[in-house]
Amino acid sequence: MLELIEVSKQYSRRNQPVDALRSTSLKVDTGKFIAIVGPSGSGKTTLLSILGGMLAPSSGEVKLLGESLYQLDSSVRAKFRNEKIGFVFQNFNLVPWLTALENVQLPLSIFGSEADVQQSRAMELLERFQLTDRADHKPSELSAGQQQRVALARTLITTPKLILADEPTGNLDPEAKQLVLETLVNCREKSGQTVILVTHDHSIASSADRVMTMKEGILSETSSSILSVVAAG
């Protein structure tokens, strides 16, 4: 489903090359839940950006659903991203001047699908996340948990094949955190969606099928049993 072949990414900072991602290879099957852990600045976000088709790697190839992502034309890639990839952000990244309903509609509206379709689909998802009564509220009028539910609804509106989550529970209380986790797990279990999640939270990572560690731009496999111990400890 997803394959990274010898992918590396170099930045130039103050004329000095910085290796954000070093020759990384990864293969993820459909319907898997992968957790990536690692300290700040280890290259997790860079990896997520590359996986999401938003940051071209310096070398290597990224294949998603059989397509070499960075061989695609930028507009085709954008459409591909819109239809096949969903993002969940730590800070929810809701558009502040749009209502919850409009935020959920956003991915559909970018490629101009019918307004009725947008609205009914968005309302369905808000209902699923028990936010029907908050449909007309702006993000500032919602709690952090509600905002993240709106963000999840926005991610799911296009029923993406791959969900990329960047610290999705970082700003949430335990109850909301649980809901997010359940949602992501459900995505994998009920819809067969692939989830790649970047987190510091080892308890969440423990719910993953595979846990990988990112350190200084190098991605390595970690045993989930070790994580269970760490989480329990």
Partner: peptide, 16 residues
């Protein structure tokens, strides 16, 4: 910036 980045993440092209 972040908002525009989010729109890109959601599928918006640079042209959009």
């Amino acid at each position: 910036r972040r908002e525009l980045g989010t729109l890109m993440a959601l599928g918006a092209t640079p042209r959009y």
